[in-house]
Design a protein around this nucleic acid. Sequence first.
DNA 1: TTGAAAGCGATACCAC
DNA 2: GTGGTATCGCTTTCAA
Lengths: 333, 333
Amino acid sequence: MPTIHDIARESGVSARTVSRVLNGSDAVETGTRERVLAVMARLDYRPDPGARSLKTKRRRVVAFVVNAVASDTTMRRVETVARRFGPLGYAVMVAWADGLDAEEREIRELSMRSDALVLFSNRPGPRAAALDRLAEEGFPFLLVDPPGKVAYPAFYIDRSAGYRAAAASLAASGRRRVALLVEDFRADERIAGWKRGLEESGLVPDPALVFRTGKGFEGGRDAAEAIFARASERPDALLCHNDRMAAGLLAALPGYDIRVPRDLALVGFDDEPWAPFLDPPLSSIRQAGPDLGEALFEAVNARLADGAPFESRTFLTEPVPRASAPAPASAEQ
Amino acid sequence: MPTIHDIARESGVSARTVSRVLNGSDAVETGTRERVLAVMARLDYRPDPGARSLKTKRRRVVAFVVNAVASDTTMRRVETVARRFGPLGYAVMVAWADGLDAEEREIRELSMRSDALVLFSNRPGPRAAALDRLAEEGFPFLLVDPPGKVAYPAFYIDRSAGYRAAAASLAASGRRRVALLVEDFRADERIAGWKRGLEESGLVPDPALVFRTGKGFEGGRDAAEAIFARASERPDALLCHNDRMAAGLLAALPGYDIRVPRDLALVGFDDEPWAPFLDPPLSSIRQAGPDLGEALFEAVNARLADGAPFESRTFLTEPVPRASAPAPASAEQ
DNA sequence: TTGAAAGCGATACCAC
DNA sequence: GTGGTATCGCTTTCAA
């Protein structure tokens, strides 16, 4: 690998001048520039990014720390940011962290290797030592979708809003026993939305209609028994923690002679690509408004390029009606 | 951020000694070491990885270039490798590249920033300029799942094997008109497996039973018309390009009064997490044997730690029978 | 066991 | 316009 000095020697100029050419400085005579560029091309020279950033303090790396339950959606957002930063000469680092300790370790590690950090975090507390230190140093970092309010700039996702709208929509469709099936993690915001949506529709949220189960498909499948055991008290609508859980439950329904949506309106969350292809197509709740990945890029780039400080934002969610829980007839589309 | 010299000054030793402590050198008196460590802890010192690698030539980064059609499976493999490398002090970079040009650009870029490159590549040719250069320099890189044979170390996935076994299994179940539904990209290996599996079962592969369609769910849904239009010539089994395509087709079947598996045995590919939760649960084909992500880590780590050269390997695929295409009754489990 | 000093590959201040 | 030289933060050769 040739260095800047090889180029300098070969083209009969100083390293300083090669550096000028490299950085597109105006103060280089055209002839000189051409000559240097020719040599660079001939030797297939590319400056060492590591050596460069030692001096400039800009590493040209954006880093992500994602947590154990990182979904495909998360990775798609990382992809969006990475694709936008690529042409700008930034590389993207990703680290997976399982617990809070691992997360802090990765924060320390990656903050030494990047110019900005994006944390898809499950941190429960409003603050953390590693982040306080970063904030103190003025190192740019942004949390995405923390489970609760945090003391740092963050992009929040308001799941409550989507559940609220979905519950209201079910009530408007004439459903009277609207149940909720959740796992433990991040249940509160879902319950709050469900509750509020029903109350606003003049229904009384019945705590007995909030069911708990395990994660994912299996969680949904396993919950059917508890939900439908007593035929007399069956719900006529069910909001699930996510699409996987709804799909698992759907697969268990034939055993109970329940038809969707006739006997039960079913709604998931996440709007996974396969949701429309279940039988019946699954209603879901999805992130609404501007794309979060796109917004992430904008924010990080503005921070890095113009020093624009991060601003906390909240992204809403909204129902996606499909056959498993059609929108009420009166709904304007 | 304190530097090694701050630590040296504060603890009354030279930078050389701090460096020794940092790198766990034996030749440091215990008392000195303790003193230095104490100062490092007090000042919250962490060595700059960039400066370090300028000298050592080891960047402690493993980089991935993934292509436009990177699936969730791909990212899960990246995750596996990243999780294993994390504790070893390696960071992971990921770049997405849409076409061959973008891919070459990212190869150039990331090879300057990493110690090894893993390429989930769609490159059609057996070789490429950027890779020839890397090979010449002795830079470690490994291709994963290229669509054809390449001139470099690669991990291949033999899809043909899975389709062959699935076709044979369908024949053994008494299906006589086994069709294939593929998109254009990577159709050949699927066709070859289908053909061979049928021939080995004493059936004659009928080219008219190879259907082409677009990608994904929509591709499957849109293909139903062409496949089932003529009631007299309907296939009684269908191997699809992947699970998404199979799900799309499944969703379109009610319009043709076709029941799965009674009238049609249906098989996908990829064994996506939701496949068991379709109605009926979808048979699929999945990567068999050792986990590819795990194997990637082993290979890259062996290369980086011990200089073990990359060896090309082939990973097989195998059917996963479920209700949409049950294994033949005689099959030993 | 410890330290002075050179060097990794770039940038940038200050002369000329 | 161009070049000498110090410098970024670390590792490492060579002496002591």
